[in-house]
Design a protein around this nucleic acid. Structure first.
Lengths: 224, 224
DNA sequence: TACAGTTGAACTGTACTACAGTTTTCGGCA
DNA sequence: TGCCGAAAACTGTAGTACAGTTCAACTGTA
């Protein structure tokens, strides 16, 4: 079997590929929040039929990056204070529940590794990479819950959040980011559950506050 | 604004209506787990175009009741021991995290109310109603987490679970169901978090075990 | 100048047709 | 019985068409 290791045929559809591609573009900011995805335009530009684009966008909808409005088609989600709040509340519940559990050794290692990768990213200073590692760290924390379904759910939220962060072009020095996560990791490693919970809370609190500030700011500049 | 309360025009598409209808049929058992939803057949029967059915099924996919397989189209999800396990694990994590929190008065009332409705349903003996109230009780418990996103996530899982239960035609006397939930409610009302967590665990444990037994049974009878 | 009403272009939602490539079925063959 | 290959059934995609909706520019009016 090893001679055929990794060999695989196409096993995907045009619509799926389009969905992936569109997802990337949206994440990269090619479409802003609230923008409509015009089917005919996209179809023409990419040389595919409109119904294929429609399928692709429906697939995209699964990831939560766009939603359909009747007679307006697919619209890129837009962050609002309420949505950000709801997202972070869910995160807080999951992450605090996670750190309240006794970690298995492998899980601790995974979190520690995630932290070190965050440090590495911070050194390079690439904001995009930092955000990625930041979210990966939290994903590793949620993995403490030992639930694949919750892992998936969190991953979906992460995707949404990453988009918001991209849109709002986060501001925070890499050192601060690392420091904030270091205390969380510390508490987890020491087995100090209460402190871990408190640190997670504090971390999420400042995050949501900062995000909302950026939101108002963006709103104001958009008005002008 | 109250003069226009509840007023709303049609605001829905054919595909959405079809999705709702199909969802009902699937839940009612018109399509068994693993069954394919054949587009042309459905389209012809309902007198709509095939791409409209396709859209409807994509919408259905959002609820998790079907998933797409390349070149096989939409397939109704089927319970497997692994899936049931994963589903219940996620439930356990959420519900135990929920009862570990201090409930607001309104929340306690909601749970109590849900319990009484479960009792009422148990008296009628209608299995379908009992399952509905059972799940509603747990939804009320998860609401303790105060997170709309988690409420939605749990609701989606509930939908999936309800389907599994329908398929496997659950066996358990109404009295047992009520008794199991009564102890949970009790623990919550008394503010005894540890016991609440333990009761939730026990409840979910027996549930998953019973479901898996029914799964094996079904598997065996299907083989014959 | 501000504003309500009208109009037309741009789009979405849906239908229908077509066809290549895949899967499934089914009858025969060993 | 179990395997094999051809036919049938079905999915994925393309392309066209059109009614109904949305939106923005235009018009006339106060």
């Amino acid at each position: 079997m090893s001679a055929l290791e990794g060999l695989e045929v196409r096993r995907t559809t045009t619509a799926q590929q389009l969905a992936d591609g569109l997802s990337e573009r949206i994440m990269a900011g090619a479409f802003g929040p609230g923008d409509r995805l015009r089917e005919s335009a996209i179809a023409a530009e990419l040389g595919v039929a409109r119904n294929t684009i429609r399928e692709a966008v429906r697939i995209l909808e699964l990831t939560g990056l766009v939603r359909y409005e009747v007679n307006r088609g697919a619209v890129v989600i837009a962050p609002t204070p309420e949505k950000v709040e709801a997202l972070y509340t869910a995160r807080e519940r999951l992450e605090t529940a996670a750190v309240a559990r006794t970690p298995r050794p492998g899980q601790l290692d995974a979190i520690t590794r995630a932290f070190h990768e965050l440090e590495d990213a911070a050194r390079t200073g690439d904001p995009r990479a930092i955000v990625d590692r930041d979210l990966a760290f939290h994903q590793a924390v949620v993995a403490l819950l030992d639930s694949s379904r919750l892992d998936e759910f969190f991953a979906a939220m992460t995707q949404e959040l990453r988009f918001y962060l991209t849109v709002l072009s986060k501001s925070e020095t890499p050192e601060e980011v690392v420091a904030e996560h270091a205390v969380i990791l510390d508490a987890i490693r020491l087995g100090d559950r209460d402190r871990a919970v408190a640190e997670i809370r504090a971390h999420i609190d400042t995050s949501v506050r900062r995000l909302n500030e950026m939101l108002v700011e963006r709103h104001l500049t958009n008005k002008s």
